[in-house]
Design a protein around this nucleic acid. Structure first.
Lengths: 337, 337
DNA sequence: TTGTAGGCGTTATCAG
DNA sequence: CTGATAACGCCTACAA
């Protein structure tokens, strides 16, 4: 008992085309007939074969999502995936996820591209930071969306990320508190997103009339471990910073751990600010002031942009931008005298 | 220039069947010819159309994964998804993810089922806890895998979860420290997994010759917020517990937050044990002793079980079980006098 | 408004 | 070992 369109047609004593029309809500079908067919469809629990539809229509209704290999279980990328998936499903799309581990496998981008091609994805969103540069080899002629790319590549759309806005708010907050020596726990600066964050912070600090001193910038892995191991380089300085900003929350939390272990009270002895605003930030002790960079909104924005591209909307009006914002919690304080 | 098998055949001056054989590594094809065809395939960058293959083969090479709606950004489920996806891709399968939000939409299970059916998934893994009971309505005749289901449903395979092992280790650890009043921050007990964890803990405590007193069990949401709000009920008791176990890590971390705020030093004034072993556990202060329940292993185990079912392996020998284990960190201590 | 027939890209069953 | 040819389940002109 193969349950296909042919079988429904037989049961309803109509042609396959009619059933097809009913399935696809074509207007021109007689309402009475339509109802009859629908009744049978419901009765036998028939569902059209997605793959066959895709093949016949020449449209896969699938989009690709490329993210980097999850570094140390950073929840940020998990959430990117979750929210992108959800946005896609709501719009009737399927999503094909690929993990690109550029560090370990330089050819992983190729692998991604192959998978994407085989599944006939209609568009690709690259929601990770640092692998854009590998993608030019990929030369695909379908819509592509990046987030926070260095420069707008021709033929692609970019969701701009305004790192500066949040950084400025954070810096202003610190300066208002009286801080002058602001340190930065940076990720590896050869990653473009880390470079961008760094530049944004520097600009924010300079705009405020201060300077981000070289020795106050420590480069470490953008992971829990990285933050935990990197913070001593700042603390052990002859003149350590009175406030520290971090490239992301997990590094900040790692740093917090190390400092707590040394008896340094974050939010009292030193000010600490993260980046991302993971859910956990509200539940550290002290809760972590941070710069919000919501994976949910980013995902959603990226998918929307992709969707518009797919539907051939006007290219001009759709410049997307995500604006970061400072979130005040308990981990900041006035400089300790 | 449609790049399909027909085009390759034309370029290579062979039939489509031959190209198909080359693609699928059929032995009987002449090596020399095969190489020639492969060269052309590589040259033009041709990739077979996955959907067409699925249609022709009658196999979608896709499996479904049902998880519950993410509660408050608990990273546990995110990781379940990530690792399941990865295991599947390695085995050449695609995965279709569905979020079932049973609480808000009782019919979401039906929605899932429909999506799965449309995509012709070959099997389904239900890696969430508490929605098994809704699934009998789903009556699908494809392999299904559960994890930690109450009872082994007929015609399905279950990855057993040995909650007891880890609980016993944890309880023994606490008792060795001298604890006698062990409290429990439970999730809602009408969720089967929460009920199961509770039962396991009770058994572990009873096996050790103690009793899990009713008043020492607090029922709260299994979220950060839940833990933060639930812990006072335990602390405010006339005779509060000297050690608290939690239904999961996020609740434990929430509880930790509340206690820190009250000046209670976890790991000195009170012992605290989580459940799950999220990456964050190593970076709280103090780091959180917990019971490991690795989403990675669970996902992998579940996918393997599903795969074996799909490949028609022997049903008997494949009883899978995941065993939890206690992980000692800094949040436990002797009872404070 | 409905039915007929051909095609989407691939596999699989036959002959040759 | 290779090549026609008929599926797979659905969509879509085109014809009726």
């Amino acid at each position: 008992m193969p349950m296909n369109i042919r079988e429904i047609a037989r049961l309803a004593r109509v042609s396959r085309s009619t059933v097809s029309r009913v399935i696809n809500d074509v207007e021109t079908v007689d309402p009475k007939l339509s109802r009859r067919v629908q009744a049978i469809i419901k009765q036998v629990g028939y569902r059209p074969n997605f793959q066959a539809q895709a093949l016949a229509r020449g449209r896969s209704h699938t989009v690709g999502l490329i993210v980097s290999e999850l570094s140390g279980g950073n929840p940020f990328f998990s959430e990117i995936i979750l929210f992108f998936e959800r946005a896609a499903v709501e719009a009737g799309y399927e999503v094909l996820i690929s993990f690109a581990d550029v560090e370990a496998h330089p050819d992983s981008v190729t692998t991604c591209a192959i998978r994407m091609q085989e599944r006939q994805v209609e568009g690709i969103a690259v929601l990770t930071f640092g692998i854009e540069k590998y993608l030019n080899t990929l030369s695909i002629d379908i819509p592509m969306i990046y987030a926070g790319a260095d420069e707008d590549l021709p033929g692609t759309r970019n969701v701009r990320i305004d790192y500066l806005a949040g950084m400025q708010e954070a810096v202003k907050h610190l300066i208002d508190f009286g801080h002058r020596r602001i340190g930065y726990l940076s990720g590896q600066l050869n990653w473009s997103s880390m470079r961008t964050r760094y530049e944004a912070l520097r600009k924010a600090i300079e705009d405020a009339g201060l300077e981000l001193e070289k020795e106050l910038v420590v480069e470490c892995a953008h992971t829990w471990e990285g933050g935990a191991q990197g913070i001593p380089d700042l603390l052990n300085l002859p003149k350590p910073p009175t406030a520290v900003m971090c490239c992301n929350d997990v590094a900040a939390i790692g740093a917090m751990k190390t400092m707590s272990g040394r008896g340094i009270r974050v939010g009292k002895d030193i000010a600490l600010i993260g980046f991302d605003d993971l859910p956990i930030c509200r539940y550290t002790h002290p809760s972590l002031s941070t710069i919000r960079f919501s994976p949910r909104e980013l995902s959603s924005l990226a998918f929307q942009a992709l969707l518009e591209e797919l539907q051939g909307d006007d290219r001009e009006s759709l410049q997307r931008e995500y604006k970061t914002r400072f979130v005040l919690r308990e981990s900041t304080c006035a400089p300790k005298v």
